[in-house]
Amino acid sequence: MSGELITLYVTAIVLVAVTGLYYLLVTTSLIRAVIGLELVTKSITLGLILAGRLTGKVGLGQALAITLIVVEVVVLVVAVGLILLAHRHTNKVDTRDLRSIKG
């Protein structure tokens, strides 16, 4: 794999991760925040596989990626569960409603 292509891969991964993180921070919708999180996870999955591929440890990279996918999907399920609970209390999915613990 050529150096330029690797640079492109890494750039794409960083861009998507930055996009996801930024979205997580600026959105007011809880669901959208989780979408941002998912984008970050995707870029990391890709990054792990790329790292494994470059060092010739494709198996290792895949093993890590698979475990990562399983773990993150469970985190997502819990997050959505919490969002639905919040919705039950406030009837909205707004991050600004989850700001009462302060100080």
Binding site: L21, L24, L25, V26, T95, L98, R99, S100, I101, K102, G103
Partner: peptide, 17 residues
């Protein structure tokens, strides 16, 4: 210090970043 803890999760994440 307490005034800085506004309860805004984004702010907390930004501190970390």
């Amino acid at each position: 210090v307490r005034a800085a803890h506004t309860g805004n999760t984004s702010a907390y994440i930004v501190w970390s970043l």
